[in-house]
């Protein structure tokens, strides 16, 4: 199975956003089209969910990522 080496995980108590820094090609699509401006570019142009609390889990960043480098999962309360 997949061993993503450079996956960075960001999480609050409702959502978990994972960014595969190896696969991400810094196209900026996820950042630009996030309806809630959750994501900002790091110095390489790859996304950081700076504003994770605003995330509405619409998954649009995941669906539009051409490189399968960002995923958004809901976090269930009981999982904490």
């Amino acid at each position: 199975m997949k061993q993503k080496k450079l996956v960075e995980i960001y999480q609050n108590n409702s959502v978990k956003i994972s960014v595969d820094r190896e696969w991400c090609k810094a196209c900026g699509i996820c950042i630009e089209f996030c309806p809630k401006d959750v994501l900002i570019p790091d110095n390489q142009g790859k996304p950081i969910p700076e504003n994770i609390d605003a995330c509405i889990k619409c998954n649009l960043c995941e669906l539009r990522c051409p490189d399968f480098a960002i995923t958004v999962e809901g976090v269930k309360e009981k999982d904490e």
Binding site: K25, A26, L63, P66
Partner: peptide
């Protein structure tokens, strides 16, 4: 980077 082919594949 950003090529739509990947989006369509997804």
């Amino acid at each position: 980077p950003g090529c739509g082919n990947g989006i369509v594949l997804g």
